[in-house]
Amino acid sequence: MSEELNHLVNKNAQGRRPQFLNTKTEEHLLSMTMALMQELAVTRERLDTLERVLEAKGNLTTEELKSYRPDETAESERQEAQRRLIATVMRSIEQEKHALEDLAAPEVSQLHVVSDDEKVA
């Protein structure tokens, strides 16, 4: 099933990602800002389409927009749209999580395991 591939949409590209800015945090903030800009541009284009189509049909009233309530189908479509928007904006952090997932676990011997004796002491 293709839906099972959804988790691969935000997959990292194999290869070292350069760090351009001072900190990882700055990199994430820039990535999020750019994704937000993208999604704002998309929203504006959608609104523009909506307004032009409705105006051409001559049947838009402000009251209709204000009182609109989505039906069940529309509601689930909108919630899914919300999820996708968030996954898009949060991509860079998700990718860092993928990198953490791929990171080898440290050898047990490197861990300082607190023994029961030490706890008592």
Partner: peptide, 16 residues
């Protein structure tokens, strides 16, 4: 650095 960071992001966004 900020120009490169932004450009790299457009490549990654395009893939996503």
């Amino acid at each position: 650095r900020i120009w490169s960071a932004a450009k790299r992001n457009t490549m990654e966004q395009r893939q996503q």
